[in-house]
Structure formats: structure tokens, C-alpha cells
Write a protein that binds this DNA or RNA. Structure first.
Length: 197
DNA sequence: CGAACGATTAGCT
DNA sequence: GCTAATCGTTCGA
């Protein structure tokens, strides 16, 4: 695991993430952080930012029962189903009143790897948490966690002790606002869902 | 009220 | 590279 991540509960300086910032800022602050759900997870290596003011966001067309969590308090998990099949984990953030969120797209698996392998039917390590659907499956994330605070159980987020080197690119799998470079990655990671260029 | 379409993935060619 | 799987939401008639 990268030395920039403090996995010790006796660490000297554990920064927490402020979710009252714009989603692109929060998306970058989450890179290199340790994310656990029920004690299982790893280092966040890929995120994307979304904001209700741009058409790629689930919040763009206004509040619905599905996306209601995005319009609620920051620091909550927004867990929608995509393609009728896959859950995904977002963290709600809010700056200037915008309904916004950060999609967690990939982890470097570090804690509870056997558990994740069982949930994912023994996929190879580099594919365990590479992509929002795979990550949700590996960590056992479903709609049951929608709206839950991410600073309390079953979540645990420990941010990187030092700012990591971050790469940036366009978001994946969207048809609108394609040119916006709101995808962020941990530089040099072998655990991205797709390469950065 | 029916049709189209996703912030995707696995499996096959 | 192509496509099926699968369902809530959105959009047009």
C-alpha cells in the first residue's frame, strides 16, 4: 500500500474530509484515502465529481425519490442502482448550496481481501474494486446504505497523511458534459477502472 | 402509458 | 469489440 496512507489507528495526524466543498475539490481530497465498509476495503484510487448544474449529474433534472439523498445533508452515502444491475457509492458534498456528489470508482484492495474475493467470486486482485459496480459488490454496498453518514459505522474513511500525486481526465460512461475533466486518479496506480490519458 | 436509456459488467468473438 | 442482463426514471405521444 502507498506510504502516503496512514492505516494506523494510532496515527499522529488524521485529517478528515470536509464535504462542504465543491465536488471536484472533495473528489481530489478523497484520492489516497482509506475507505472501509464493515472493516473491508482499501485505498481510493479513482473518483469522479458531479454537480446538479451540469447535465451528466443524477441531480440535473431536479429531486426525485431516487436521488433525494443528493439534495440532503453532505457527508452521506448516495447509493443508486445503475443499469438496473449495479450499485455504486457516492458521497454527498455541498458547496454554495449545490446538490453534488463524488462517485468512488476504484480502490486498491488492502483490507479484507478474502472477504471481497468471496463476494466477487474470486476475481483477480486488479479487478476486485476497479469500477463502481465491482467496488460496491466487493464491499457489500447496496441501497440499504443509501443516506447513511460516512463518518460512522459501517463506514470508515481515513484521509491520506500527505497530499498524493493526482492525475485527471474525462468522466467515464456519460453522454453529456463529456469534455469536463472531473475524473481523478492516484498517479501510477495499477488499480484504476480504465487508464488515464 | 409505452419506449428508451443509463455515472456498468461479464462473457464471448 | 459486441451484447445481454435488468429496472427505475425520464420523455414523447
Amino acid at each position: 500500500m502507498p506510504s502516503s496512507v496512514n492505516h494506523s489507528r494510532f496515527g499522529v495526524r488524521l485529517r478528515s474530509v470536509n464535504f462542504m466543498e465543491s465536488s471536484p475539490v472533495v473528489a481530489q481530497r478523497l484520492i489516497g484515502a482509506l475507505l472501509l465498509v464493515n472493516g473491508v476495503g482499501g485505498v481510493i484510487v479513482e473518483t469522479e465529481a458531479y454537480d446538479e448544474l451540469e447535465p451528466a449529474s443524477h441531480g440535473f433534472s431536479g429531486q426525485t425519490p431516487r436521488n433525494a439523498v443528493l439534495f440532503g445533508p453532505p457527508g452521506r452515502a448516495y447509493v443508486p442502482l445503475s443499469y438496473g444491475l449495479h450499485w455504486s457509492l457516492n458521497i454527498v458534498c455541498r458547496e454554495a448550496g449545490h446538490a453534488a456528489g463524488v462517485l468512488i470508482r476504484a480502490l486498491e484492495p488492502t483490507v479484507g481481501i478474502p472477504r471481497m474475493r468471496r463476494r466477487r467470486r474470486h476475481t483477480e486482485l486488479s479487478m476486485l474494486c476497479a469500477g463502481p459496480g465491482r467496488l460496491a459488490q466487493a464491499l457489500g454496498i447496496t441501497g440499504a446504505l443509501n443516506g447513511r453518514r460516512v463518518d460512522a459505522a459501517p463506514f470508515r474513511i481515513v484521509s491520506a497523511a500527505e497530499p498524493p500525486k493526482i492525475v485527471r481526465g474525462v468522466r467515464i460512461g456519460i453522454s453529456k458534459a463529456k469534455e469536463r475533466r472531473w475524473r481523478f486518479g492516484l498517479s501510477g496506480s495499477a488499480f484504476h477502472s480504465q487508464p488515464f490519458r
